Structure formats: structure tokens, C-alpha cells
Amino acid sequence: MSDVAAHRLLLVHAHPDDETIGQGATMAKYVDEGRGVTLVTCTAGEMGEILVPELEHLAADKEDGLGEHRRGELDAAMKELGVTDHRFLGGFGTYRDSGMKWHDDGHAIPADDIHDNAFWHADLTEAANHLVPVIREVRPQVLVTYDEFGGYGHPDHIQAHRVAMYAALLAAAPSYRRDLGEAWDIAKVYWAAMSKSRFREGLRRLRDAGDETSFEGMDPDGYLPPFFLDDEDITTQVDASAYTERKMAALRAHATQVATDGPFFALSNNEGQQVWGLEMFRLVKGTLGPVEDDGWESDLFAGIPAE
């Protein structure tokens, strides 16, 4: 066990690129600090929109090769972040991207036509049983996933939340499926979060600078989607601003999904490290560590002794 990191983080995400957008800087920071980082991705993102014109033939309604391509993008992104332990839930291809469409209220909902092995249709216990042995093998003290709405309503994000939370419960029960490994109780569980006030400030600066296209339709003083939280609902902020450039490099690796001239990079250029290098979380299980002057915990592993 001497080569096992004393602190270990498990992240459960729906598609390639979700991990980098949400926690890419934190992942890179923890890797550099010698902490263990394991990523489980639930689908290959086969139904994603393709932003690279010369790769449009990979679309689901054409050659249907986007999932394999995004597998390569994920590999490249993880190299940028330094993460060496990344896996697909149940193995690559077990669950397919469910796709989505937009509701009139501005959040995602399931698509009209869903593939037979779409993640949204997965049996919850079966899917959780793919994750339980990973938890018992890695023995993470911290789990990061989405909230119950999946951030913005995407069915695969919601399902990833359900699978991660259920698997964490099952993995901790000594009498449950002993064949899947020795029981392990994850000490702290976090849901990804984004600050409403901070996003408003960044968006306001974009608009003041004359940028009316990035995050089109969003008003810095108007309605924002539900994945932006009031600061009082956020418990933790990891300052990984020193790793912002590595996060941006990992985003560039997800080229079919993230445009280098798109809103992520526009906001980064405008706000610098203050937007994408400060990553926020909401503690939903475990004991909050010491709170800093800004009112938030600063380390996901705060209060957890190193093994």
C-alpha cells in the first residue's frame, strides 16, 4: 500500500469534457500535490454536438463515430491535467449518451428518441454495481458528482448523480455484494457548484467590454439557469488558479465540444484566473473543514487525516 496516495478523490461525470469544465483545475492541482485522482465517465458522449466541421461525419446520424473520437479527446485532456486513472462506467461502450433537447424553460430534458442502451434507461442497481467495485478498490475519501438536477437538467447528468449517490451507499454496506470488494464508506461527498454572484460579475464585464455573443441570452442582472447557486448554498472553494492554463489546455483537447473562440475562453480571457481557476462545491455528506475568511472551506480533504 506504500504507493497508494494518502488522499484520494473520485469524480463521476456523464460525458467527456464535463470533468474539465467542472473541476479540471482542481484535478490538476491535486495530482501535483500527490493526491490520488480517479475519474469515472458514464458515457462516451456519442450524441454530442460537433463543433469541428471536418468531423461532422462522426455524428450519430451519420457514421456514429463520435464516441470513439471523444474517447481520444478525453485521453488527451487527462494528459494535460496529469490524471492517469480514468475509466468508463462498466467499460467503454456499456452505456450510450442519451442525448437531450431544450425545454421551453431553458433547461435540458431527454431527447424524443433514445437509444436502447442509453444511460438514461440504465437500471440503477446494475449501473451502481459497476461503480461499487471502483469505490472499494480506490477507497476515495472524497466523491464529486452533480446535484440531483444534473446542473442543467441533462438526463445523463441526473443519472450520473443517482448512480454515484447510490453506489456510495451500497459500497459502504459490509453485507452488500461481498464479491465486489471490501466495504468502503466515502467520508465526504460534494456536488459541483457555480456561484451566481461571481458569474454575474464576469458576465457584466464581458457586456461592458462590448461582448454580446458569449453566453448569448444571459443577462447579468436577469434570470440565470439553476446550476448557478447563491453563495450561501456553496460550502467550498478550491483555489486552483495556478492551474487555469492547464485547464484551458485540457478544454482545447475536447475540440469537438468546446470552441476555443467560445464563451469559456472569452470569459477566461476577460476575467483571467478568477473564473475558471476557482472551483466551487456543495458539501452534502461529511463534516465541513475549517472555513476561510471568504466563508468557504478551501480543500475538499479538509478534516480528513492522511492514511
Rank of each mutant, 00 (worst) to 15 (best):
A118S: 15
D17C: 04
H57R: 13
V258Y: 04
V132P: 01
R87T: 03
R96C: 04
V52A: 12
D299M: 09
F119P: 00
H115S: 09
K101H: 10
A250M: 06
S2K: 14
V142G: 00
G24R: 02
S175F: 09
H57A: 14
A173P: 00
P140D: 12
L131F: 13
Q257P: 04
H13C: 02
Q274D: 14
T43Y: 10
D123Q: 05
R204A: 15
A250N: 01
P220E: 07
E232W: 05
H15W: 07
H103D: 15
P263I: 00
R136M: 08
M1G: 15
D156Y: 08
M218S: 04
L267W: 02
H157R: 02
S2H: 14
T41E: 02
E182F: 09
A44Y: 02
A25G: 15
L180N: 04
W184Y: 11
K29I: 02
E80M: 11
Y176F: 15
Y166A: 11
E49T: 13
G106C: 08
P225R: 13
V291H: 10
G262K: 04
G34Y: 11
Q159P: 01
A25V: 12
I109P: 00
D233C: 07
L10I: 06
M280C: 09
A171P: 01
Q159C: 05
L203G: 04
F301S: 00
P226V: 06
E63H: 08
G150W: 04
S98P: 01
Y152G: 02
E279A: 06
A172T: 05
G45S: 09
F149Y: 12
D18Y: 08
N117K: 12
R205F: 01
A306F: 05
L288H: 06
F281D: 00
K29C: 11
Y166C: 02
E307R: 14
S98T: 09
G34N: 07
E54Y: 11
R177K: 14
E297R: 04
N269K: 14
H7Q: 12
D211Y: 06
A255K: 13
L180R: 02
I234G: 00
W191I: 05
N269L: 10
L131V: 12
F301Q: 02
A164M: 07
G262V: 08
D17V: 04
S98L: 06
A111R: 08
S241M: 07
G286N: 11
L51H: 11
V291I: 15
D208C: 00
P225E: 04
G34Q: 05
V238Y: 06
P226Q: 14
E46Q: 12
H103C: 08
P263Q: 10
L39T: 01
A302V: 13
A306M: 05
P290Q: 13
N270V: 04
A6Q: 15
D179T: 12
Q159A: 14
D233Q: 12
A77Q: 03
R136N: 10
D123E: 13
N269W: 13
I186W: 03
V163K: 01
R246S: 05
T244C: 05
R200A: 10
R96M: 10
L206P: 00
D17S: 10
A5G: 03
K101T: 12
Y176H: 07
G289E: 10
G93C: 05
Y146S: 06
A128Q: 05
V12K: 02
L206R: 03
